[in-house]
Nucleic acid binder design. Structure first.
Lengths: 114, 114
DNA sequence: TGATTATATAAGTAAATAGTTATATTATTA
DNA sequence: TAATAATATAACTATTTACTTATATAATCA
């Protein structure tokens, strides 16, 4: 197994970002599939600016990336990121959050443009 | 390999605690050996109350434990803690902090009572 | 036993963080 | 092209966090 070593400074920054329930759940969801902002608004029952600001923080350090598809902007995990292996090891220990998106599908609020 | 799954709530709390450079470094050091408060004060060039408060937070959620030895109180990682495997996987990805204690030994400020 | 050393805790302060409201931007649709 | 929908950003506010200063406790030492 490849042993990844990350510097303490960067590890701290990443752990601080993941030390928030909304962002940690976002990352776990995004690790499986991409998701648009309005879906997160539904999932977390949070305001749009609040979701947008969480995503921005994750994007600013390169953990996620955005891609516009028409009027929607989809976010996905940037698996090319230098620190992704570090994050992945954490995410792997978390329970699946599939149910969150399943609920949206049942409600019919999942974006299905793609 | 045993797959540990930790609930999101608890994971968030632990990651938030580890998302601080002082506490993260403390945990990495303690993962190898026990250490007393005054050694941390030296290592981090921080005030005694500040160190004491960081250790209290780690102790409050059970990640470390204290043991009095005379006038000193030694802290060590509580490897029996339910969430230790989660923490350990994170710590394993961090660079060794042995040099921090080595410096103290060279200065002669390492506590050698035990 | 009085002084010193190690540590903890409480109270106060400054900085960081998360959320809100308001507004701007960009794309789609009528 | 005007209205609507999705998203981002800015400014403000409330909460949380980390650190400081002051004080308390407990052990050791002279």
């Amino acid at each position: 197994m490849l042993k990844t070593v990350i510097d303490m400074e960067k590890a701290t920054v990443i752990l601080k970002l993941l030390g928030d329930k909304t962002r940690l759940t976002m990352m776990k969801i995004l690790d499986d599939q991409s998701c648009c902002v309005c879906e997160f608004v539904e999932i977390f029952k949070a305001s749009q600016p609040s979701i947008s600001q969480h995503l921005r923080k994750l994007r600013d350090i390169g953990l996620v990336q955005e891609e516009r598809k028409g009027q929607w902007i989809f976010y996905s995990v940037n698996k090319e990121n230098e620190y992704y292996p570090f994050v992945q090891q954490i995410l792997n220990q978390l329970p699946s959050q599939d149910d969150k998106l399943k609920e949206l599908e049942e409600q019919g609020t999942r974006i299905t443009c793609c």
